[in-house]
Design a protein around this nucleic acid. Structure first.
Length: 717
DNA sequence: ATAGGGTTAG
């Protein structure tokens, strides 16, 4: 990456870093430091041993039994030492039983500063700032730990200003490195990266935690490149990275992704100690190699990891998904359950995403069942993945019903379901959901507007689209981006308002890109406007000379008005520019098996039967008075041949195969890489009637639900 | 293993 190009390769990562690594080979084991017991000198050895055994038993109850059982044991201890009280306070607060903690705290006869600090931390952990503040003011002796506890807790709750004031109100002599670190970490956690950097440079001395905070903070705030620079500075300043520091560095290297740097960090992890025992490093390495598209390395690292916890498994599963290896991803998911690792929300999210990638509803449903069994259906992430999965597989009403069950619906959840409805042409649903979103006081964002505009476009709701566009823009709800303008041009164009659409393109505050012009060109195709089309196409050819869609659209336009000379000239131009029209293909997935068809394909094993079925359909279509619309046959050939080409379009082959291979009456779902052609669209409406089934076709632009002689797109697409 | 500051999967 650029950041490193200024640094000589040999200097930085190879020499000093690895030297330090060698010297510090005991890094992973030196944490087992011993604490002296000098502070207990006022207590006799005998009572010290008794307290020690009480602690031992108390922890045994806390770890292996319930909190109530631990309390029952605690209650049996005659005049428990304050440290035993403190252990109980901690446990109550951890379990969000703050009232009981406060109650017990009041009963402590001789409170020490540790018990006060624990109680303050407990209040903050449970979100009770008022009591925390009150205790802090009431306590007789405050140490730097008390101050830091309050500062850190406030920052975690987002109360930045008060934390800042407290931090600066501390006696500067007391303000130790942990206090500075808490403040830096808190700034990062609240997105205030510049303030964090300012403090980072201001602090008198930095330890390895300060560096790690800063690296992770930059990385999480979207500046992984700068994170690696800070990582480099840390090494240069002679601070040895801890295992945590290495994990932070790996995470940044994964995001960029920076393969060479990450490998250097991996090397250091080997030299510094045995990384295979560190679950954090193992998982980070898997993610790192996956994001660098090095799945073999990711597998090797995973295989060597001693602690294969749910995070490591999920990292591998996600890695395969990230590399579009969805079958392998789901194999990992299966294997992890076979070896007894219980998947969590993240694992399910990734597994569902892979089902989605495979467009495999069957597998998705099996995983959905497991999700329900584990009670994870209402989580934002898992719920969201289910919504996407059902909606991408064509089952929009299932998507909506899963959405309704999500507990805390974020703007992302709302956007997902709105976009889902839009893609299926359920415009009114999308709008109703948007109103509900506003009622529930969730602020819409740019994606919401895109979703709404595409809903309007696909349902022909021009007035609504104008309203949304104006409302979002004028109320400054979002900054209008080029994508929003492209969507608006799309709506206007589809509804036949070509002049207004072109005027909008010309008056946009930014220069129109090929996406915007393509929206206009598609509209011209639909409304047969050669004049505007030629202008739009020329713009596209200038910006993106290999945009095959533009050539095809323009060529089709000429063809439909029988201007064969122009068609030929475009074809020549395409050839000259080396542009290849993507061949149309359609597919459907049955029992985990993907069946792919090209136009006039004869390679499928059931070839004979498929063509018989198509013939039968053809006869039935003719009986219904159907006449093929030849403008969609793009070649200059005899009429009879054109008809034949149309009836063997890939989507029809896929549908015929679907009819042969599924139960009578069930829905057939077919995917297509290009837009479904107009003639097939008319024909499939009738075919759905002839065979009395619902046929769903997902093309490159949207979903079409064919049923009872109609399509859900209302012929807008 | 009575109290404060850093990390991994989505």
């Amino acid at each position: 990456m650029l950041i490193f190009s200024s640094v000589s390769k040999s200097n930085f990562y190879t020499t000093p870093f690895l030297c330090i690594a060698v010297q510090n080979s005991r890094l992973f084991s030196f944490t087992i430091a011993t604490n002296g017991s000098a502070s207990t000198s006022s207590i006799s050895t005998n009572s010290f041993n008794i307290i020690k055994s009480h602690k031992h038993i108390l922890f045994h109850y806390l770890n292996n039994q319930t909190l109530n059982q631990a309390r029952a044991f605690f209650d049996q201890i005659p005049s428990p030492h304050v440290s035993l009280y403190t252990i109980m306070l901690h446990a109550y607060a951890d379990n969000h039983r703050l009232c009981e903690a406060i109650d017990l705290f009041r009963q402590i006869p001789f409170k020490d500063v540790v018990s006060w600090n624990t109680m303050i931390k407990g209040c903050l952990h449970c979100g009770d700032i008022i009591t925390a503040r009150k205790l802090f003011n009431e306590m007789p002796h405050r140490t730097v730990v008390s101050w830091t506890t309050l500062v850190d807790g406030l920052l975690r709750l987002g109360v930045v200003e008060e934390a800042e004031a407290l931090f600066w109100a501390m006696d500067p002599v007391d303000r130790d490195v942990a206090a500075w670190n808490a403040m830096i970490h808190g700034y990062c956690g609240n997105g205030r990266i510049d303030d964090a950097l300012r403090l980072f440079h201001l602090m008198p001395s930095k330890d390895v935690i300060s560096w790690s905070c800063m690296i992770a903070g930059l990385d999480h705030n979207g500046d992984s490149g700068q994170a690696l620079v800070v990582f480099r500075d840390m090494v240069a300043s002679g601070v040895w990275p801890s295992s945590v520091g290495l994990v932070c560095g790996l995470s940044a290297a994964a995001k960029i992704p920076a393969l060479r740097v990450g490998i250097q960090i991996h090397c250091s992890a080997i030299k510094l100690g045995d990384w295979r025992f560190d679950e954090f490093i193992s998982a980070s390495l898997v993610t790192f190699y996956s994001s660098c598209k090095q799945m073999e390395a990711a597998c090797l690292v995973f295989g060597e990891a001693v602690c294969k916890n749910v995070v490591a498994w999920t990292a591998l599963l996600t890695g395969y998904g990230f590399n579009d290896k969805h079958l392998e991803a789901l194999e990992v998911f299966k294997k992890m359950m076979r070896v007894g690792v219980i998947p969590n929300e993240s694992s399910f999210t990734s597994a569902l995403n892979s089902c989605c990638g495979l467009e495999d509803l069957e597998r998705g449903k099996v995983i959905h069942a497991k999700v329900v069994k584990m009670g994870l259906e209402s989580g934002g992430y898992v719920g969201g993945s289910l919504v996407v999965m059902y909606s991408k597989c064509g089952y929009v009403s299932d998507a909506v019903s899963v959405f309704k069950g999500i507990n805390e619906k974020s703007v992302v959840s709302w956007n997902t379901v709105i976009v889902g409805c839009a893609q299926h042409g359920y415009g009114m649903w999308a709008l109703a959901l948007f109103n509900q979103m506003l009622r529930e006081r969730v602020d819409p964002d740019g994606i919401t507007l895109t979703g709404l505009l595409s809903a309007c476009s696909r349902s022909g709701m021009l007035q609504k689209a104008r309203c949304f566009f104006r409302y979002f823009g004028q109320e400054r709800l979002v900054t209008l981006t080029i994508e929003h303008y492209a969507s608006m041009v799309d709506v206007l164009g589809r509804c036949g308002e070509l002049e207004e659409a072109e005027a909008l393109v010309m008056s946009m505050p930014m220069k129109a890109n090929s996406m915007v012009w393509l929206a206009l060109l598609s509209a011209c195709r639909k409304h047969s406007n050669l004049d505007v089309a030629e202008r739009a196409a020329n713009q596209i050819f200038e910006m993106e000379p290999d945009c095959s869609a533009a050539y095809v659209l323009l060529s089709n336009l000429y063809a439909s008005s029988s201007r064969w000379a122009e068609v030929a000239s475009i074809r020549k131009k395409m050839k000259h520019n080396g542009v290849v029209k993507q061949p149309g293909s359609s597919w459907l997935t049955l029992k985990g098996q993907k069946h792919n068809f090209l136009s006039a394909d004869r390679s499928h094993p059931l070839n004979e039967k498929i063509y018989q079925k198509l013939e039968w359909i053809g006869v039935k279509l003719k009986e219904l008075g159907y006449v093929p619309d030849q403008q969609y046959a793009l070649h200059d050939v005899e009429t009879e041949q054109k008809e034949e080409m149309l009836s063997y379009h890939s989507e029809r082959l896929a549908i015929a195969f679907g009819l042969l291979s599924t139960v009578k009456g069930s829905t057939i779902t077919v995917m297509k890489n290009l837009r479904v052609c107009g003639d097939c669209h008319s024909a499939i409406k009738l075919i759905a009637n002839i065979v009395d089934r619902e046929i769903v076709v997902r093309d490159s632009s949207r979903f079409h639900h064919f049923k009872n002689g109609k399509c859900s797109c209302g012929d807008y697409w």
